[in-house]
Design a binder for these strands. Sequence first.
DNA 1: TATTAATCGAGACGGTACGTCATGTCTTGTA
DNA 2: TACAAGACATGACGTACCGTCTCGATTAATA
Lengths: 215, 215, 215, 215
Amino acid sequence: MSAETPPPDVSPADGASPPRRASAGPHRSKASSEAILDAAEALLAEAGYGGFSIEQVARRAGAGKPTIYRWWPSKAALLLDVYARQKLQLDQDDTGALETDLAALIGGLWRFWRETAAGGAFRSIIAEAQSDPAAMAALNGFMAERRHHIAGAFERAARRGELADDIDLDAVIDIISGYAWSRLLTGRIDDDPAAIAHAARQIARGVVRPGWALT
Amino acid sequence: MSAETPPPDVSPADGASPPRRASAGPHRSKASSEAILDAAEALLAEAGYGGFSIEQVARRAGAGKPTIYRWWPSKAALLLDVYARQKLQLDQDDTGALETDLAALIGGLWRFWRETAAGGAFRSIIAEAQSDPAAMAALNGFMAERRHHIAGAFERAARRGELADDIDLDAVIDIISGYAWSRLLTGRIDDDPAAIAHAARQIARGVVRPGWALT
Amino acid sequence: MSAETPPPDVSPADGASPPRRASAGPHRSKASSEAILDAAEALLAEAGYGGFSIEQVARRAGAGKPTIYRWWPSKAALLLDVYARQKLQLDQDDTGALETDLAALIGGLWRFWRETAAGGAFRSIIAEAQSDPAAMAALNGFMAERRHHIAGAFERAARRGELADDIDLDAVIDIISGYAWSRLLTGRIDDDPAAIAHAARQIARGVVRPGWALT
Amino acid sequence: MSAETPPPDVSPADGASPPRRASAGPHRSKASSEAILDAAEALLAEAGYGGFSIEQVARRAGAGKPTIYRWWPSKAALLLDVYARQKLQLDQDDTGALETDLAALIGGLWRFWRETAAGGAFRSIIAEAQSDPAAMAALNGFMAERRHHIAGAFERAARRGELADDIDLDAVIDIISGYAWSRLLTGRIDDDPAAIAHAARQIARGVVRPGWALT
DNA sequence: TATTAATCGAGACGGTACGTCATGTCTTGTA
DNA sequence: TACAAGACATGACGTACCGTCTCGATTAATA
């Protein structure tokens, strides 16, 4: 979403009050789009999904509404970019066992959601998807990406010989994602290592080869 | 939500055009509240969460907006009642094993969501909860209720001696709910017995006593 | 729910700033419509037709835009009411001759246009009519009304025997109106009795019975 | 400058797609300015004053907006040039009497307005002048030009000895112009020789020397 | 039996946000 | 240096809902 040729930005002295960015020619203004994303992120943090409106974002960014609509066709698209801007750095360290890998995965995801604007954005995107088909499509895209993350842990487990033969990876991924989502959506992505460990163990147990020694 | 003593209703409340229900005196008019819930349910079915507004509900019900606001303080409250009106009758038949019990549970829940207005209402409530704390509270209430449903299957399994000793029931319930939710929220509560069976098996396996013979 | 942004206004009902008029039931609020017309009139006087917008009128009146659109479907309709509110009191005194009657008519009309908001409103209506068919229709309605005014002077002249037999009243009325309009539209409705008298004489001469003694 | 009626949006870059005129170097490109005037004229004819915008003109002409603004500082200026491009060729034939000369003048003017883009442009200029002082100035310039046209007929009449001694030529010209304008602005410049003849007779009568034999 | 009080429908109210269009200024890259 | 292209901030457009308010009618329980 929102790909452009970033021209050199010369815009001087932007800061406190809206600096009245002029056009940078027939190219997307990086200063504008960043101001918009910044404003969106801040607004989401302060007012939550309920207080998130294109109107407010424009006001805070010192941008025109048409500029926002030019690049983000919907509220969902803007939220998506806010989410994507947060760099998810899930440490995919190999902990040596699937169970602990899963716990690390969930713990890292929740920390990411908690400590950046991503959690609020993602909740909002899910909410938006319930009325906007485009947001729904984007959401399913996220699912695919998440699948990739989770699958890594399972590949390592498979190499260890840890996995049962007949597991259904799709189902397991839905289970893991669903757990993470539902806790997000009900405001319970607290930092509780014990709870995460319990859930990871339950999930992992359903998947490991019978007789495999759990740590 | 919206508890009252329903007085005897005499109003015919016919279907065709707005029936112009007169006041029923200083009591809540059952005809009105049912017309409102009917309208809300129909609107939700037709226009989805995006097209669901108090304004439209009032228009379709032939009711005044204040009448709605008097009894349902928020959109979420109304959705909640729409949901609650659908009588969930999850057949809690004992299938003889936890795995099949879980599959029956999930399958029954999804069928209920698909075949009534409940699915749309529940999706909407979750969306609403992302901006309305009251809806969030109600949602957590639902979780508690669902916990009760799920716990039944686990009690039967425990009686059979099917469960491992060290399971964390809270985590398992979150896992099952989360799976059901995430499929609802991404529009994938299709009737696919195989997928449900796979998921149920993965979850059950994480929970059963090692060595227990799965059917 | 999405009531999100809380209505910050609790209305201390102070005099200076917009007094937050509440609804007066399912009836049109006279306070509102008068505030709107007042604001429209003031805005027209201050900013002219170019600065006249529904948005500004709403802002100055402390009214919601929908309230304006509820009662005045277009800018032209609002201008029309601003015009109509000015009570035109053309002194239809019989001056004893058509020529002086016409001069009094034109002079009175111009004075009315100059000294009230009517002139600005009328100019605006004419401008609006060039793009809005409804305004054009209203404008032709005005013409009919003006015709009535002018016709009075001609009836008196006819009773005096002052008129030629073969005059075309429609043409004469178009001529008189056109003169008044074109001076309004070019910003020349100054108070110049001599100019008015000259024009009135030219017009009257074309109409009087040959040989009739002009004063 | 009053965008009044929402544009119906005719054609974005219609059929024979923009010819992409290259720059003509540091001189004004005649091809560009003609394309712009052509587009303006066509747009005015199709969409009327309400649909006339610089934006649309630029789009249809395949021109950049700055190019238009460089040469025409305002919408009015562009309209003025559209008007001026139509070559008014009022046949100033001497019909032998003022009355018929005036009828020919008005009839010719209306025909010109009807059959070219001039009528629409002139209506638009008048409308524009109600909010744009520059357009008002230009309008008064037109008046001066029209005065010249009309004065010709009066000079011929004077040579014939047809005119009364004490006529006020300025007033008469205002009267004639006003009549033509008001019919234009109310959409009544139909081809009705009788109506024109009546008006011309009324006006001429007010001007001719008493006793002069009218044809 | 009359009075009172709560509820009903209707819908107007001041607002906020929506998504679109036009304005006039600006910059870029091409010729 | 003029041009096509088009992004930019601004602000008006007309519409949909929000949640609150006031009506006038209707009805049930109280007096």
